[in-house]
Design a protein around this nucleic acid. Structure first.
Lengths: 183, 183
DNA sequence: GTGCTCATGTAACGGGTTACATGATTTA
DNA sequence: TAAATCATGTAACCCGTTACATGAGCAC
């Protein structure tokens, strides 16, 4: 139950068309809440019918650009939702599951996947660090960007965690393979 | 597409009934792949129809305990899946989203939620550390438990990350409140 | 035989994913 | 005018969640 609120947040930051929203969900917002264009169009339709956003532009129809803006009710709904207590979701990670499967199957050949994931996380971390360097230079006062920077640092630390853990995992599997070789 | 494979892994570790599986998904497996009993029963039915697991026990019917075991095809399917390349899913975290909403709404009152989440993560970390102390004492040789321990350390480090980040976030919001007070 | 627990299910709904379809606008 | 691209949309499927239903066995 978060996608509509992600869209409201994005539209408050800047009124947009569906496709522009989709692009922003591929970048900034998507760093902590991903969505495809199908989800976004479906949800924009619901939000409009619910009176939380307003569409402007040439009348309905395919291929006609429409720009959406948040209405007062939408802002209120977002504020209501953001203040609601919500527990963190339990972790659900296929890679950890595959390791557990490997433990019971005696499967080899997961090192390649671990290395590939490490490379992906390394690249993501580099991207975040580049954004930090560009948008939050060390000298500038924090000010209103405080929360944005905080969220970005969350992403940076999360990628750092994965990187460190995958290093550890790769070390383990190499040791494991060596141990099996000795037996 | 991971729940059936989580179930196959669990059944390979130990053949079980649906309810026993549910309980294990509340404990060990659930630490990285959660599932409710409805999901598990639905999936057990599919796995049986697909010929990947076999049910034994008194004939069909409600309230009749059935024990499931993995068939050769099931083991093969698990091995096939575990060897498949799979990209890490993009992060999707409502708490980060709420912070972003707070940034645009100028919302206060998120400190309580941050503190509550910190407490939840602190408790989860303590639970993981207790499990590590009990199941992986420092002296014992790693051996076959290597991968299990690795997965557990992943959980420990992930909770440590959240804890550190929430500490940082709480420091920020306090500073922010103080700064607003001074204005 | 009432209530409690174990155990297995059904139904309904919404979200996420993938594949595909269609209209408008630019450009070669 | 053919194509590429921008833009909006439909349909189908599975997964996850919630609420509820049903039956068996046991304690009192």
């Amino acid at each position: 139950m978060s996608l509509p609120h992600a869209i409201l947040t994005a539209l408050l930051e800047k009124p947009s068309s569906g496709l522009e929203l989709t692009r922003r969900f591929d970048r900034s917002i998507g760093f902590f809440w991903s969505a495809t264009h199908q989800q976004i169009y479906r949800e924009l339709g619901r939000l409009e019918r619910a009176g939380l956003v307003r569409a402007s532009g040439p009348g309905a129809g395919r291929g006609q650009r429409k720009e959406y803006a948040v209405l007062p009710d939408g802002r209120a709904e977002l504020a209501r939702w953001a203040a609601l207590p919500q527990d963190p979701k339990p972790v659900r990670d296929p890679l950890l599951l595959r390791l557990r499967a490997a433990a019971v199957l005696g499967l080899d050949g997961l090192e390649g996947e671990l290395a590939r994931h490490r490379e992906l996380h390394r690249a993501q971390l580099a991207e975040y660090l580049e954004i930090e360097r560009r948008d939050f230079p060390p000298g500038a006062a924090a000010g209103e960007n405080r929360l944005q920077h905080l969220v970005l640092r969350g992403g940076i630390q999360l990628e750092s965690f994965w990187l460190a853990w995958l290093d550890e995992a790769l070390g383990e599997t190499v040791e494991g393979a060596a141990a099996e070789g000795r037996e």
